[in-house]
């Protein structure tokens, strides 16, 4: 266990050192290191794992977005999958029906999800906890049902042949090629979440989560920040949806947006540590792999994941990220105290 901790300690120290040279350096390096992953995966395992890498990147975007509204701002939402669906269907429809390029359809899908995010967020102004969960669940499920019953949105057959994005003559039409796109998107998403969350905005989100009355008294406009968190998380969900829709083979179906996906998403941020950026990402990687490996037990997944979540909440309430954080903070505190007593003696 301490070995794992110290690995994370080492990594975070290295990142800090690199960032001291230039803020973007760790990101560019990480991107470069992750770029040959499809080739490595196909050499070590098989091509299925390249597909899985694509899916992980998409789920990282979903998890990072959900972490902003749920983990940082403390707003219970079970509507995130609905926003994911809106991003996917909007982007798919725009490219299928208008023949517009991915590069237009994708941002429009993101904006559509962002607008829907305001609607999903509005109940949070009045409701809390279980009531808010029910309200957002209703909104999210109604999106899925609307897709399921409307032929234009695919209904029971789903939307087929959603075109792959292209840049010049390069087409993102294989899992290897598409991986470059989703990797870039996930990295940008992670980078932006750091920028947002490690600023006054992120601190205001956390203050709202911890205590709305104290937050308000200290100058935080609680309603504004709740809605902002919902909208930002919706933009992430919309981006994930668009990327999912255009991923080979370019097929989406309302079964991709069920409550099972929502439970999976919640498990990611609970396992990773509510309100912990890296934790949410680690959670997304682990849970996406488990989710895919247990697909044959599709019907038991909600039960399996729900129970796991309850166990984590009881026995590991801060998740993986919280445990690592606490370890590092304690170590830092002890070191600073030792330094002091050394200086004194």
């Amino acid at each position: 266990m301490t070995a794992i901790y110290s690995i994370f300690g080492r990594i975070s120290e290295t990142i800090e050192k690199l960032a001291a040279i230039h803020r973007l350096l760790p990101w560019i390096l990480a991107f470069a290191l992750l770029l040959p992953l499809p080739q490595i995966l196909s050499a070590l395992f098989n091509d299925y794992y390249i597909y899985l890498a694509n899916k992980i990147c998409i789920f990282i975007l979903l998890s990072v977005g959900l972490n902003i509204v749920k983990g940082f701002c403390g707003q219970v939402t079970v509507g995130h999958v609905g926003l994911y669906a809106i991003g996917a269907v909007s982007s798919a429809l725009i490219s299928l029906h208008f023949g517009w390029s991915f590069w237009l359809a994708f941002p429009i899908g993101i904006l559509a999800a962002g607008l829907a995010g305001i609607v999903v967020g509005l109940p949070s102004v009045r409701l809390e906890g279980a009531y808010l969960a029910l309200a957002t669940l209703g909104l999210g499920e109604s999106v899925r049902i609307m897709i399921a019953v409307t032929p234009l949105f695919g209904s029971s057959t789903g939307l087929l042949s959603i075109p792959a994005p292209t840049i010049g003559s390069f087409t993102f039409d294989s899992y290897t090629n598409y991986y470059y796109l989703v990797l870039a998107a996930a990295m940008i998403g992670i980078y932006l979440s750091f920028s947002i969350l490690r600023s006054a905005t992120g601190r205001a989100f956390m203050a709202v989560r911890e205590d709305t009355v104290a937050a308000a008294v200290h100058g935080v406009n609680v309603t504004k920040y709740k809605l902002l968190a919902f909208v930002i998380s919706a933009l992430y969900a919309g981006a994930a949806g668009g990327l999912f829709a255009h991923m080979p083979p370019g097929y989406i179906h309302h079964n991709n947006f069920t409550i099972i996906e929502m439970v999976t998403l919640l498990l990611m941020i609970v396992l990773g540590g509510i309100g912990h950026i890296w934790g949410g990402i680690i959670g997304a990687i682990i849970v996406t792999i488990i989710y895919d490996q247990t697909l044959e037990f599709y019907f038991y997944q909600p039960l399996l994941f729900g129970l796991t979540m309850v166990l984590i909440v009881i026995f590991m309430p801060r998740g993986i990220g919280g445990m690592i954080d606490r370890y590092l903070a304690t170590k830092k505190f002890i070191a600073s105290q030792e330094e002091k007593s050394n200086a004194a003696s």
């Binding site: 203050a207 009355v213 308000a216 406009n221 609680v222």
Partner: peptide, 23 residues
Amino acid sequence: ASHDIGALGIARTFQLLRLFSEM
């Protein structure tokens, strides 16, 4: 609203503190 009053220059503590515990 509370946040506007805070911005005008009134600060207070709470009898039960209401710290942001996990921060």
